[in-house]
Nucleic acid binder design. Structure first.
Lengths: 193, 193
DNA sequence: TATACAATGTTGATTATCCTACACATTGTA
DNA sequence: TACAATGTGTAGGATAATCAACATTGTATA
């Protein structure tokens, strides 16, 4: 049972089945509340047998958790590639470009009420990123120069980031990732006034 | 070998695999010529094993033929449902609506050069439809009143129909099926002048 | 020409998925 | 209350899809 969960998923059927389930979920969440979702409906939409669902997830909450885990893993991979000497805004560009590539998924999981697992996890992750960035800059940062509390800066920075991304998705990404990233950093650096 | 070809396809895996292959083909035909396609590329894009392809099709030409067969079967089903007392233009509406639902497929197979299998088959089918319609009307038809040769009327009617559909698809269906069907019949009934 | 490489086609063994069937819970309705 | 419909969860046997391996063919390149 649970193929591919003991070891790393190798068999393409496992990857494909989970992808089909994910797409079915993306579809259905636009048609009904998550509470109204049933495993039968998901399996039907995914063109898999209902029994197969249980080979991958215990139930729907378990599915949501594992999907959120996978989301975080993917984003970590994107952020951790040659992070060495790049500037902050290039990192944000990469993040936005990745999200844009998978817009259907992120628009749904971040825009849907009652799917807070995803927003919570993403907020956690972005908080971590913002935190390390702020700590990395240290005394040179405006945070220190102006005497702003670090945790408040983190709250502000991460919520602004995730809120910007969500709004950007909700409006079907009317700006390129590069442009949005530049804008975002301009606001952060120069302020809103 | 060839699962689901001896009997009618029942196992969902067969249906799903062929659907995946079809979607992969639709994808790839927009990126390269059909001659440049390889079974490996199709299998990769379809997220199936290359060996699995051979369980369904002997080679790429065989795949194209079988897809064309399936296309005709599907269209026949659409046209043959309660054809009793309906008017001609309602039948065309049903046909166009079905094509619009599967626009990605039809746009590709009818719009791509070197995929003539599909246009040939469709032209054959539509020729049959037009033929029976013309014969059904008999002496009341303008074809007889004006002394037009029946085969010429068929050539004209079927090529006009398929050409209209293809152009409609190429322009991303800027009209509803109903509107297009009405327009089409208005032209056929009242002429172009 | 010779060599390397990519795609094809086929095999036997393995595995993920499917099917049928059953027991049980929940919900809506006569 | 009854009972029909729908969803959940599990099990054993059947099958489609996968893998690894190999030989063959075509094609590009030195």
């Amino acid at each position: 049972m649970m193929p591919g969960h003991s070891k790393h998923p190798i068999d393409p059927r496992i990857i494909r089945t989970r992808q089909l389930i994910k797409e079915a979920f993306i579809d259905l969440v636009q048609e009904m509340d998550i509470e109204k979702m049933t495993i039968s409906r998901i399996a039907d939409r995914a063109t898999i047998n209902r029994v197969t669902f249980y080979l991958h997830y215990r139930d729907i909450p378990d599915m949501l958790e594992k999907m959120a885990d996978e989301m975080i893993e993917d984003l970590q991979l994107v952020l951790n590639q040659d992070v060495a000497d790049e500037e902050d805004w290039l990192m944000l560009v990469r993040l936005l470009e990745y999200i844009a590539e998978h817009a259907k998924f992120y628009k749904v999981v971040l825009g849907t009420k009652r799917a807070s697992v995803f927003t919570e996890r993403l907020l956690n992750m972005l908080t971590g990123v913002i935190t390390s960035r702020i700590e990395m800059r240290g005394p040179e940062s405006l945070v220190y120069k102006l005497g702003i509390q670090k945790d408040i800066a983190i709250w502000h920075g991460s919520s602004a980031l995730i809120g910007t991304i969500v709004s950007w998705l909700r409006n079907d990404m009317p700006y390129t990732p590069t442009f949005l990233a530049k804008q975002f950093f301009m606001i952060n650096n120069k302020g809103l006034y």
